[in-house]
Nucleic acid binder design. Sequence first.
DNA 1: CAGTATAGTCAGCAAGGCTGACTAGTCTGT
DNA 2: ACAGACTAGTCAGCCTTGCTGACTATACTG
Lengths: 146, 146
Amino acid sequence: MEDQPVLVPMLGALLRAPVRAISARIAADLAAAGYGDLRPAHLAVFQHLPAAGARSTALAERAQMTKQSMGALIDYLAERGYVERVPEPTDQRARVVCRTARGWAVERAARESLERLEGEWGAYLGADRMREFRAALTDLGTLLNR
Amino acid sequence: MEDQPVLVPMLGALLRAPVRAISARIAADLAAAGYGDLRPAHLAVFQHLPAAGARSTALAERAQMTKQSMGALIDYLAERGYVERVPEPTDQRARVVCRTARGWAVERAARESLERLEGEWGAYLGADRMREFRAALTDLGTLLNR
DNA sequence: CAGTATAGTCAGCAAGGCTGACTAGTCTGT
DNA sequence: ACAGACTAGTCAGCCTTGCTGACTATACTG
């Protein structure tokens, strides 16, 4: 009968902490930069949006979510001027979602925020360990997407 | 103007993939073992519950959530016979939450499921890299909880 | 014993997802 | 040339996991 509930901390909990830290940091930095209306989920859109834009259905697929959910995120971003939907000339059903200038700016800000945080972590762990950590994570990602 | 939206995959996305994989795997294994009524959030309760039991308020604190949210999780588990609330003799306001036999069984099953998954990952990455990966994650955790 | 602190509950809400059913265009085979 | 199948996107309704604020009942402390 152990006294501690968990001898070795569960991997899930270990992984969740940095995920939360990243979301919180980016949200805080974006809010400070005047983008307080963006929530973490919206950044997923930018993350999967090619520079030339993409259709919402394609975006949903890449982000591994339903087209309805992605549609709602895009509505939100479009209302606030982060992206716009331009009609697709070749297919009247479809529209292409692309970043506005504001969209580009916020994505740059988010990326810089993440890079700063990653720098802090690298300084704490050491550059080699950080690199290896990222590499392991990347490999795990390829294992999981098979 | 890059064609790919993300040159280096964002760290957040890299971290989220294994988190989702863990939740999905454990949920699937528990469902197959007859514990289909447990959702990922409920496992957080077990994860913070000492063998001797604990008060819901203490549990909420450890799990870093509000007492109301933890209370709801405990209600759910208690209704389905995974935990029970026994009155605290020294304090009539309080009750101690402890696992039932079913609670112990499900926790064991969850842990075994996670260990199998972790074993698969270790086999893919190699034992050394997996160990170092876990160590880096643990260190990051201590950095974040300061 | 008055006042404050603590354990827990009740009610209401937000974010981020989901499924199912639907409309409106597009493509394909005969 | 057009019926039938497919695709882009929307509408409506739901679930999960968390939150805040207001409250009750018990316990502690000066």
